[in-house]
Simulated assay, not measured.
Amino acid sequence: MIAGTANGDRSAFATLYEVTSPRLHAICLSVLKDRPEAEEALQEVYIRIWQGAGRHASSGLSPMTWLITITRNRAVDRLRARTSRPTSSFTEEAASAGPAETGSDAAGSHAQKHKSLDECLVQLGEDRAGAVRTAYLEGLTYADLSARVDMPVSVARNWLRGSLLRLKDCISQ
C-alpha cells in the first residue's frame, strides 16, 4: 500500500488509510489528549505519508513502524507547540485548589509540587527518570521506549511501572 501510495495510487492510499487510521488516531489521541487536535494531527500525518511514501524504503523501518514514527513525531511536535504557548491549565489548576490557595499561595503550592516531583525523579536515577519523562510527557509507547533503551517491551513496561510506584511513594511522603 505504501509503494502504491508512493506511485500516486489513490486507491492504495485510501486502503492504507482505512487499515491504519484507527491505530494512528489512537496514538495521536494518547499523546495530545484532545480529540479535535488529534484529528488535525492525523490529517497532517496522512499528508506527510502521501508526500513521503517514496522515502519509506530508504528508512529501513517496517511499514507500520514507519507510520507510527511519523504519527508520534507529529503528535509530539504539536504537543510541544501547545506547551510552549500559554495555556489555561495553570489557572484551572489554581481554581481547583480551592479558596485557601489563591494568589501567591497557589503559585507557591504549585512550585512546591514541582520541586517535590523533581526531587523524587532525581531519586529514581537519571535513566529511569528520563524514561518516565519521555513515556508520560512525550507520549512514548512501551515499544518505543524498549527500542530506545534496548530492552524487551515487557521489561520496559515493568521498569516504568516500578518507577511510577517509587514516585508515588516518594511524593506521598
Rank of each mutant, 00 (worst) to 15 (best):
Q112S: 12
D127K: 09
S109D: 10
H114T: 10
A106P: 00
H110A: 07
L121R: 04
S104I: 09
A97Q: 02
G125K: 04
S116D: 15
S109M: 10
A106W: 02
A111M: 10
E119K: 12
A100H: 10
D127G: 06
L117N: 06
G98K: 00
A100D: 13
Q112M: 09
L124K: 05
A106Q: 03
R128Q: 10
L117I: 10
P99N: 11
A97Y: 00
K115G: 07
A129M: 04
D118C: 07
G125R: 06
R128S: 10
S109H: 09
Q123D: 13
L117E: 02
H110R: 12
G98C: 03
S96E: 13
A106F: 00
P99I: 12
K115L: 11
A111W: 04
Q123I: 03
A111E: 15
L121F: 04
E126T: 13
C120W: 01
G98E: 04
S109P: 01
E126G: 08
E101T: 05
V122E: 11
A100R: 13
S96C: 09
A97W: 01
S109F: 01
S109G: 13
C120Y: 03
E126Q: 14
S104R: 08
S109T: 11
A100W: 11
A111N: 12
L124G: 05
Q112L: 10
A129R: 00
L117F: 10
D105M: 11
L124E: 02
P99H: 12
G125M: 08
A107G: 03
E119M: 08
S116F: 03
T102A: 14
A111Q: 15
Q123P: 02
E101F: 15
A106R: 00
L121A: 03
H114F: 12
A106C: 06
D127I: 08
L117W: 05
K115Y: 09
G103C: 08
L117Y: 08
V122R: 15
G108R: 09
E126A: 14
A97I: 00
G103P: 01
K115R: 15
K115T: 12
C120R: 02
A100Q: 13
L117M: 13
E101Q: 10
L117A: 14
H110C: 00
H110Y: 05
H114S: 14
R128T: 08
E119L: 10
E101D: 10
G125L: 07
L124T: 07
A111H: 14
E101C: 13
L117C: 09
A97K: 01
A106E: 01
S96I: 09
G103M: 06
T102E: 12
P99V: 13
G108C: 07
L124A: 08
Q123L: 15
D127H: 09
A129G: 05
D118F: 06
D105G: 08
A97H: 00
H110L: 04
A97P: 01
T102N: 08
E126F: 06
V122A: 10
Q123S: 15
G103K: 04
E119G: 06
D118G: 05
T102G: 14
E101I: 02
C120N: 01
G108V: 02
L121V: 05
S96K: 14
A129C: 07
R128I: 12
L121Y: 02
A111P: 01
K113H: 13
D118I: 06
L124Q: 05
R128G: 00
G98D: 03
Q112R: 15
L117D: 06
A106N: 01
G98Y: 02
S116N: 14
S104V: 11
A107L: 12
G103A: 07
L117P: 00
L117S: 09
